[in-house]
């Protein structure tokens, strides 16, 4: 016999659903820019992330193979790998990268698509992104797509069949935080798929703000890996994501211009 109490419940009863798969953590992390593999492992563990992005690059030929392998340190049976097309400037290279990743990871078809426009801004090239997204979706991939904070394009990517849309908050690696909260809010309000902020977060409060705007999650790398103490920042980000999510679920009070006392006025004896 069950007596079910209807409450909002803790964040753990509120999974992030991506293409029908439930994840307990709403923080997704990259695995680049760490000092070494051990720091990568410790930071990923402290972040509580279940989805981690990886890059696909040429195998070193004829070099020492004693260096630890990412797949040994962060085993793919424990983490959901999200191969990422970072560094691609054309739809063709992004599609090649995803196909190689699928082969490398035994048919794993969840990918993060990003096609960049230029090196100075690392802003997405939307024309190439739309082209690559269509090719990948037609080829059976589940595409989580990096885009700018344009609500029209975000909706277009959703309508094409992307399983998650990931607008930037600010340029990649800039740490500038959420530069256009109104656009992020509009994207969230329009969306029928998860919206994750990808890029631009600098500190824990930025992550909390993204979640308080109603985003379904945040993907970050530099904000953790580039912190003075990456493992501690990973822990801070985990808490910020949870706090921001609970704050959004709980519903903030309306902003008012003047004060509103919290102690009753009735019963005062003065």
């Amino acid at each position: 016999m069950s007596s079910v109490m209807k409450t909002a419940g803790p964040a753990t009863a509120d999974p992030l659903m991506i293409d029908g798969v439930a994840y307990q953590s709403r923080l997704l992390v990259g695995t680049g820019k760490y000092r070494d593999m051990e720091e990568t492992r410790l930071a990923v563990e402290a972040s509580g992330a279940e989805i981690i992005t990886v890059a696909i690059r040429r195998t070193n030929i004829g070099q020492s193979k004693d260096e630890p392998n990412l797949l040994d340190v962060l085993p793919p049976d424990r983490y959901t790998y999200l191969p990422n097309t970072a560094g691609c400037y054309s739809a063709e290279d992004a599609v090649r990268t995803c196909r190689l990743a699928r082969e490398l990871l035994d048919g794993h078809d969840l990918v993060k698509l990003e096609v960049l426009g230029d090196e100075k801004t690392l802003f997405p090239d939307i024309v190439q992104t739309l082209d690559a997204a269509q090719t990948l979706i037609d080829d059976g991939f589940k595409v989580m797509v990096y885009t700018n904070d344009d609500p029209i394009i975000a909706k277009r990517l959703e309508d094409m069949g992307c399983v998650a849309v990931m607008p930037l908050a600010a340029p990649i690696g800039s740490g500038l935080g959420i530069r256009n909260p109104y656009n992020i809010l509009t994207i969230v309000e329009n969306a029928g798929v998860p919206i994750l902020v990808d890029a631009g977060v600098g500190c824990a409060s930025d992550a909390a703000i993204a979640m308080e705007l109603g985003c379904d999650g945040v993907l970050m790398n530099t904000a953790i890996a580039g912190a003075r103490q990456p493992v501690l920042m990973a822990s801070a980000m985990k808490k910020a994501i949870e706090a921001g999510r609970e704050s959004w679920l709980a519903g903030r009070i309306p902003k008012k211009r003047f004060a509103s006392a919290s102690s009753p006025v009735d019963g005062t004896f003065f």
Partner: peptide
């Protein structure tokens, strides 16, 4: 011929 592997990297 391109021979690739997964390495740390990824997001931003």
């Amino acid at each position: 011929i391109e021979i690739v592997r997964a390495i740390g990297g990824g997001a931003h």
